[in-house]
Design a protein around this nucleic acid. Structure first.
Length: 421
RNA sequence: GGAGACGUCGCAUAGUUCGGCCUAGUGCACCACCCUGCUAAGGUGGAGAGGGGUUUAAACUCCUCCGUGGGUUCAAAUCCCACCGUCUCCGCCA
């Protein structure tokens, strides 16, 4: 939900944003029109209602003889109030529907255009090179006895897998490294529900553009979350937060579920794109003026994780047309995947400014004592997918894999993952 | 899953019997000032959320909110229905 005040004061800013996203610009003018008619309808209803309230007192204090005539008049007034109320409700709905369809105004500097129009901010690390033919993560996973895709498919269908042995341990190690990184920055760890109610799913904006990506359990009217962001954002919904001391930060640990309905045929091999994975997600509630600085901070934590895992990566500024409706800016970090000869997304971090908080009604108290929406940000600190880049980057000719130094303490000091038989 | 009780503006509660004297009262906590004088008490005043109008802003003013959504009525915290949640007991299951 955009700021209605911005719509009145500076609609051009919203128009420019919509244009950069390749979204509807006329929606802005529709919103302005419905805002005006909504306010008029509300005014009419409220005036009538005030009249009815006043008249009601007359009726209440009237004598028995007078009452019949007064009630007759009150009935007529009541009918008019009902009509006005109905019109006001319709005008309100029309307004929220149209305004709700407008995406978060992008931040100055976000590149225009679609998926391919991202801007690379920096490339860090040396891409792995080998004096042998490198194996992909599926093959390495088999050699190490770490990833069992055949049985995953047998048990649950395509895009499912088992992590076993050192694979299972590696994921837990990775998640723990991420958790410790977050703890060092005072994030509060949170293990979140992965089934949520419809209103929370809608409030975080996932039921709109991503609705066919989401698992739904009709018997219980619950949705399986594709990221703990949903629960982390819903955690403080309808609350007024105390932001006077410090930003409110959570590290959410959860399994994530995605239908991958629109991805038929894409990334079919391996565990790059799967229906179920684990993720440690950072989520920050901050003052609106601190949002951009927090965004940079979240990226820096992600980069230190990348460096800890000794991966080559680039940071990209995602183009406007490729942003979700809640994000005003999004940075992705993509790691180099040797056998694919390309960078693949490992993290994503969005600055949702006040857009998400406004929809979920998450506020703080300003100096003057008024309430105002907070800014929310979220970003990945580790996921199962990282295993793909780690295995491929650190593989050796004999099929073994060197463990990045930072991960060794989490694997009982293990320095090399050895082939099984 | 079955039976019952309950949900009031931070917390605790009054109000629901019998719809209109509720513009939702009171206590605690909170804020400002005053008094006192020593770590606490007294006095006065203020103070919830959302949305209109007016305004540079403040002030002012109006509407809405008693778990949520409907309904009945001239009028709903109060009556009816559905849903959500909490508690107690029973059953079932780890």
């Amino acid at each position: 939900m955009i700021d209605p005040q911005l719509l009145r004061d500076n609609p051009d800013a919203i128009r420019r944003s919509q244009e950069a996203r390749g979204a509807s610009v006329t929606l802005v003018d529709d919103a302005i029109a419905t805002d005006a008619s909504r306010r008029m309808a509300i005014g009419e209803y409220e005036n009538l209602r005030a009249e009815q309230n006043a008249f009601g007192k007359t009726v209440a204090s009237a004598t028995k003889d007078e009452k019949a005539a007064l009630v007759a008049k009150a009935q007529e007034l009541s009918a008019r109030v009902k009509v006005a109320q109905q019109l006001a409700a319709e005008a309100e709905l029309a307004f929220t529907t149209i305004v709700g369809a407008i995406a978060n105004p992008i931040i100055e500097g976000v590149p225009s255009g679609g998926e391919e129009n991202f801007v690379t901010l920096r490339e860090v690390g040396t891409k792995a090179s080998f004096d042998f033919e490198p194996r992909d993560h599926v093959e390495i996973g088999e050699i190490l006895g770490a990833i069992d895709i055949t049985r995953g498919t047998k048990v649950s269908g395509s895009r499912f897998y088992f992590l076993r042995g050192i694979g299972a341990r590696l994921e837990i190690a990775l998640m723990n490294l991420a958790l410790d990184t977050a703890l060092a920055e005072n994030f509060v760890p949170l293990i979140t529900p992965t089934l949520v109610r419809p209103e929370i799913m809608a409030g975080t904006g996932f039921l709109g553009e991503h609705s066919d990506e989401i698992y739904y359990l009709p018997a219980d009217d619950l949705y399986l979350t594709g990221t703990s962001e949903v629960a982390l954002a819903g955690y403080h919904s309808d609350e007024i937060l105390d932001m006077s001391k410090a930003p409110v930060r959570y590290a959410g640990w959860s399994t994530c579920y995605r239908r991958e309905a629109g991805a038929a045929g894409k990334d079919n091999r391996g565990i790059l794109r799967v229906h179920q994975f684990n993720k440690l997600e950072m989520f920050s509630y901050v003052l609106p003026e601190d949002a951009e600085a927090e965004h940079d901070r979240l990226v820096s934590y992600q980069e230190s994780m990348m460096q800890a895992c000794e991966l080559a990566y680039r940071v990209i500024d995602v183009a406007a047309g490729d942003l979700g409706s809640s994000a005003a800016r999004k940075y992705d970090i993509e790691a180099w995947v040797p056998t694919q000869g390309t960078y693949r997304e490992l993290t994503s971090t969005s600055n949702c400014t006040t857009y998400q908080a406004r929809r979920l009604d998450i506020r703080y108290r300003t100096e003057s004592g008024k309430t105002s929406p907070v800014a929310t940000l979220n970003g990945t600190l580790a996921t199962t997918r990282w295993i793909v880049a780690i295995l491929e980057t650190h593989q050796r000719a004999d099929g073994s894999v060197t463990v990045p130094e930072a991960l060794r303490p989490y694997l009982g000091g293990l320095a090399v993952l050895e082939p099984q038989q």
